[in-house]
Design a protein around this nucleic acid. Structure first.
Lengths: 333, 333
DNA sequence: TTGAAAGCGGTACCAT
DNA sequence: ATGGTACCGCTTTCAA
């Protein structure tokens, strides 16, 4: 690959000093118009572009923000990323993205590597494994070197910017709405029992059903949920399901569909899932919308603000979820 | 933010020269074991980490690959990205991602900026606007500075690595399959008439139906497609639809569903859409799978190979699509 | 108005 | 075995 021409080479061609060329290109008042013109023309002719690495080294900045995500499969995280991208694209910062695939090891590696001169700030949703292991030393390690912002799955013990989802309230309210609509025996399905957000959501559920009936909680992989749910539907008189994530939502949907309980409204279903899929299912799926894009935008703005005003103290913002009522809660028996 | 300690500072603390510290940390044979030990311990104590920017400047390399995508909404592109990530994660390269939102201007900016010292290679699917304008000068510009790989939407006139989809064949075969199953009047819907891949797919369609009936091509936005399709369904005796992208697929699906033509197999439907949504629709959607992840993996491997062997000549690989038969082509009248 | 030189944080060659 | 120094490409201060 051809390398770009450097200031030095350009200065040799023009038979002036390096500093003259540099100043001319930066439109310094010290340089005569005539020289500036000569230099600019030569720069154009030889397609001179300043070397980023050199400028970064000189300035001590890299103008880059790291985004560490557990997965891109997850529609919510993908939307958050788009929100972040949206805001950052308008600035002179760049984004570098790392996907951990829910692996703690990969996350540690990414965090340390990015924090080490690659980026000035990190926006992260920690991986499932990290939350299980509760090992946050890598984040502790870097929190003085780069600005840190956690969203969705956060670590409470680390003081830093946070953008949170109102998991507890969202599920509590969703369940209450089911109850308000006459549902008396509500089951819960989840594949994210390991996540902090999953736990908060379950708390919302148990608190909501508290005085009415005993909890029916079905956690595990998609297959486990399908099997267990099918059985529970036979044993107990379940008339509604709340699903805590997309996988659980679709698993519950499939079972409900197969057992012929959804199309006729014998059970209601509220889930977490992307808009496209929720709208296109038959019946369409009522969901709790976390406003991923807004979360991303908020996170990006917060971190830009910290980058600008070095000494501001950590903030914490909660983005409220919204219930999107669709057919799975609208069909009456 | 606290800055990392530098070699210089460390050398001052240890009262040895900078070069000694550098060599010790790099385990040079020139340094005595005892000094190495001292240095290593101090490095650990002060949490010394070499400055990436400095090393990059010194080595003239940045170990980063840029990925430029038109959108992340697109399930196919998201999967390609995961494929790329998958392969690159196993190397010491980093990925920097830029989303153009189908804008030519953003693409030009991204390409030039990334090529200018940010990355050593660029993997790109050009934006819709770029294909409409047919302005590829930014790519011409950088193709000697960084390794370039285009996938999916490629520019034929630029010689560089390419990973292609067999758009023409895939649609041709899909239509033939519909015909083999007795479908006699096949319509086509598409929101990607601006894209090279969209055009190739239409060619596949027209060549397939060629001798049998005149083409019924419905192009435009989702709303346009819905309206036009509804009308065409009334006028003409359409018994099958092929949709060229996810939006067109879902629009066609919705119309077919509403007109009660899908559940009873009065029309067949083949589309392009992600696995999750296709499987969960009722009836489930037969799709042409482009194997996005494989495309991503292939692209990443190709570019890594070029990075390793500077002088290899450009390659071109075609990844064959596969028809996934689901209910929209299985239900018989 | 121009240029020399120091410095950003490393590596590596050459002396000592 | 250790240290001095040049260099990567740029900016910036200071001197001419």
């Amino acid at each position: 690959m051809k390398k770009s021409i450097t200031l030095k080479e350009l200065s040799k061609i023009l038979k002036v000093s390096i500093s003259t060329v540099s100043k001319a290109l930066n439109d310094s008042y010290e340089i005569s118009e005539i020289t500036k013109k000569r230099v600019r023309e030569a720069a154009k002719e030889y397609n001179y572009k300043p070397n980023r690495t050199a400028m970064n080294l000189k300035s001590g900045r890299v103008n880059t923000i790291g985004v560490i995500l557990p997965s891109l499969k997850n529609f919510f995280l993908a939307r958050v990323l788009r929100g972040i991208e949206n805001v950052i694209a308008k600035t002179d910062y760049n984004i570098i993205i790392s996907i951990t695939n829910e692996s703690h090891e990969k996350e540690v590696q990414s965090v340390l590597s990015l924090a080490n001169g690659f980026v000035e700030a990190i926006i992260i949703a920690v991986s499932e494994e990290t939350q299980v292991l509760q090992d946050y030393s890598h984040l502790e390690n870097v929190k003085d070197k780069v600005h840190l912002l956690m969203f969705d799955r956060v670590v409470n013990t680390i003081p830093c910017d946070k953008v949170l989802v109102d998991d507890y309230d969202a599920v509590l309210n969703a369940v209450k709405e089911l109850q308000f609509n006459g549902r008396k025996n509500i089951a819960l399905t989840s594949t994210i029992n390991n996540l902090s957000v999953g736990k908060l959501r379950i708390k919302g559920y148990t608190d909501a059903i508290n005085e009415y009936h005993k909890p029916i909680i079905i956690e595990g992989t998609v297959e486990v949920i399908k099997k267990a749910l099918r059985e529970k539907l036979k044993e107990e008189s379940i008339d509604a399901i709340i699903a805590l994530d997309e996988e659980a939502s679709l698993a519950s949907f499939k079972v409900g569909k197969k057992e012929k309980l959804l199309d006729n409204g014998k059970i209601s279903l509220i889930g977490y899932a992307g808009k496209t899929i929720s709208e296109n299912l038959t019946p369409s799926l009522t969901t709790i919308n976390q406003h991923g894009k807004k979360i991303g935008r908020t996170a990006a703005k917060m971190i830009l603000n910290k980058l600008k005003n070095e000494n501001e103290k950590p903030e914490e913002i909660i983005i409220k979820s919204t219930l999107y009522n669709r057919e799975t809660t609208r069909i009456k028996e």
